[in-house]
Every structure is written in C-alpha cells, then in structure tokens.
Design a protein around this nucleic acid. Sequence first.
DNA 1: GCCGTTTTCGGCCCGACTGTTTTCAGTCG
Length: 558
Amino acid sequence: MENKAIAKAFKLCSQLMELFNENPFRTKAMAAASFKIDKLPFPAVNATLEQLSEQPGIGKSTADKVLSLIHTGSFAELDALISKTPTGVMEMLSIKGLGPKKIQIIWNDLGIETVGELLYACNENRLVEAKGFGLKTQEEIRKAIEFANAAQGLFLYAKAEKAATPFMQLLTTAFPDGIHAFTGEFRRKCEIISSIDILTTAPVAEVAALLADDETYTLFEQFDASLQFTDAYAIKYQLLFTSTNDFATELLLTTGNEAHLQQLKEIQDPLPNGNTETEIYQALGLAYIEPELREGLEEINWAKDNKLPKLITFSDLKGTLHNHSTYSDGVHTLAQMANYCKDELGLEYLGICDHSKTAVYANGLSIERVAEQWKEIDLLNEKLAPFKIFKGIESDILSDGSLDYPDDVLRQFDFVVASVHSNLRMDEEKATQRLIKAIENPYTTILGHPTGRLLLSRAGYPLDFKKVIDACAQNGVIIEVNANPLRLDLDWRWQQYALEQGVLLSVNPDAHRTEGLLDMQYGIYAARKGGLSAPRCLNAFSKVEIEAYFTKRKDEVR
DNA sequence: GCCGTTTTCGGCCCGACTGTTTTCAGTCG
C-alpha cells in the first residue's frame, strides 16, 4: 500500500468524523496525520511502529492504524464510520465545494442520500431552503456534480498507463509470436482516456479464454474481431483483432481521430495498402506523422509540405525548472532533489521554485527563509559543480495580479515562475486581466499552470487564451507546460498558437518529491501533441544557454 | 489524537474568500 492510499484513508476518516460531529481536535489530528503521511520521505510499508510514531504528528495510536491499514486494508474506527454512512453520502465528499458540514445538512435536514438525488434537488431549487445555502451555493454544487458526472468512466493518461502496461505484458507473454500495439487515444497520448485500445494478431478465442482465467479482468462484450473488458479500476479496454497482413493499415485506421482519418480519405479512398504506416503515408504523398499529432489539425498540411516539427523527446531535456523542496511543501530536501537530477536523470541543472510567502498552507517562504535557501544553494553549487541549482521561486499571483515579494527581492532570483493558487473563481475578464498583469511584471520569467485546472476534478478558470498568449509574446514570458498528469496545463490545443507567436514553452514537473521529476515524461507527451520541438523548449537549453538566457532577461529589466 | 511540559493534563487552532448572514461558518489551496 502506497503512502498516498494510506493518507487517503486517514483523510476519509477525518471527514467522516467531522460528518458525525466527533471531537474536533481528534478530527483535526486525523487530518494532520493524513497530511503528514502523504509527505513522508519513505514508504510507510517499510517502516516499523517506532519509526512511524517518531514522526511529528503521528503518535502510537495513528501508527497502529497505519499498520492495520497496511496489513488488513483498513482499521476499526474507519470501518465503523463507513458502515454507518450511505455510499451516496460518501460520494458527496469527493464533490468540489462540498465538505462534511454542508453534507450534514443535505443528509440530515433534506434527507438526501445520493448524488443523483442531490442534483435533482438542485434542479428543483430545493437546496436554497436549507440553512447556510443560497442560490449561488446551489448553482456551484449543481455545476460540480455535472463536472463529476462528465468525468465518469474517464481516466488520466498516467492512470491508464499504469493499468495498460501489465496487460500488454500479459498479452505478449501469452502470445509471443503475435504482433500487439496500443492504438487509439492511448497511442495518441491523449491526456484523458476513455478506453485503452490494443490491436493484436492473437486469436480472439484464445484471448477470451485468457481473460476468463484472470480474475483481474471482466469481459463484457465479444465479437468476431473485438473484445471489450474492464479491470479492477473499472478502466475499459478494447481489443481489436487483425491479421499480420492488415496490421499496418488497421493500426493507422484505429490510431488517428475521426478528423485525421477523414482528411486522409479525402486524399485517397480507400487508403492504399502498405507494410508499415510509413509506406501508407508515403503512398498518400505524405511524410510519416507521429501518433501524437494525428488529431486532424494542421498535421496533414505539414506532412504534405514536409514541414512536420521534429517533436521533442525526454532525452532532449537538459534540466528541470519549477520544483519544490522541504523549504516549502516538498517531501525531499534541496540536496536530495539536486542529486536525483544529477545522478539518476543525468541533467545539468535544477531550478528550485518553492512557494512564496502568501502560500501559508504550503509553508511558503518568508524573505528571511528565501535568503537561507540561497545560502544553501550556493554551498551545494560549489559541491555539485558543474551541476547547477538555479534560484527560483513560484510566486503566487495575488488577486490583483501582483507578485508576492517586493521588486528588490524578485530581482535577485535567477528566474520567477508566477502562478495562481487562490481565488480561483473568477470570470473570464477578471482572470485574464489578473494573468496579464502578472505577465507584464518585468520579473516574471515563466507563467505557471495557466488555467489552474485539475483534469477530471476541477475545471480551470475561464481565460481569453489569445490575449494571455499574446501578452506572453509581447513580454518575453515563457509558458509552462505543467507536466503533472492532473494538470498538463497549458493545454496542448493552445501550444501551437503560442509557438506561432514566438513564445517559448517549458516542460515543468512541479515536483514535490524526487520521483515527481519523472512526470516530465507526461509533459513531453502533451508537448509533442502541441507540436513542440527541442529548440523551442526552455529546459532543453543547456546549462550554459539557459544561464545566458536568464542573464540577458535580467539585464533587460535594469 | 498529539504534544510537551509548569512532565500524564490541558491546550491545541493557516488565512483568504465566498456566500450566507446581519457577524460568521465552510471550504480550499
């Protein structure tokens, strides 16, 4: 069991305790334990009772519960709470804007026990009658439920990948002579996946038998040339069966989205045959188009004119910007983050960007603590040279669009990532103006996660993307492609426009622990969909190049 | 439930924002 899962169980426990009006201090202690476990720098599974209860915020009682969770999957108090809560009420806890207190009223006063009923009550204007509820709250809840409903059956790419990899392993082991390939939206590296599609030459009856033998998977539909099934996470899989001869054609026909295939058919219908996708594209007079680009946008025109971008890869990255450490809310120390970048990833530099002072919840840095961090960076830079840590900050963009420190502090950073963390509910006009003001600040180097969205969980604030991107172009501000699989923000659909305006992008992991740096792979996938090539990516610059870039930018301000 | 002693009890306690109130409670990052 991973720390994240343990932390989730404690979070649920604290929420249910609050729902049942248990002692608020115990409730808070439970929430604090959840937070603490999530931030442990080691897997709790490997820890002893003593090691756990040594941690501040975790006492003997909590440590016992952690061990019980690891060994039995739960603990007594949690079980008791769950058993007296209707499933629908627990589902309400995951809806944004709904907490235990509001749910209490919904459940006890209005007698609503399912999310479906709750939506119905919103539509019937029945929530406004309840104490502490009004029209706006009702509307927010209605929107949040509709957002959650729309996310049903959809999965983040990263989660789908975690499931897809072992299944592909199973398939290739069982049918070593067959050809198997991912196709569809999974192959296109879409940020959200509705089904994992696999093209295979394995015999359909034998695959069906294999699935029947494996209790991880539940077969729910079988045709002559396709199978559909789900796994333990309820992720949908679609297997498509073909022959070795037709494999390349089928792969091409199942990978591209409808618009892409439609445009191909406008060149020639039916499509020419070929032994590889490259041959088929060639027969159409086109260069090979990478799967990520097959979205029916400009890729076919580019392929006609031989103007396809050489898409960036993970190995093009020379460094990483926008990362956190234990100075704010990260799990690993500055030295651990730096060593991981240097030794495990072979990078030339690390940009550290802890939270700024307004982000109190994330232990944001006071001016004094910024100075402390700079001292440690200087020491580490001597020790780790030629590897370099750049002094950055993730400065909150305050409600009025200003940054979080006075200018004389801001000018001392090597670079500044400016991002919004508070006051997320704004209309388009306000949100756009707020960002533009931050972009026009001469000390802003990179605009961080521009929309604040959390995929499948929270919509970003609405933006006039063109205005924001144009402002970045005018002010020489780089736009982040936040590589966290929940964000992938700037969305790839806007990256091409940004590149056309001359804006550089930066694939930033926003890592809060060493392993988080690996998220850059997801950012790379998104950036490839956006058509990014290495020369247009800030952290594909070498250390020498990026040093020169930062220096030049700072000189321009003076 | 955790912590730290004035050492086995008593205090603990983000702040901004929003929407609901008519002075505050709930939620979030």
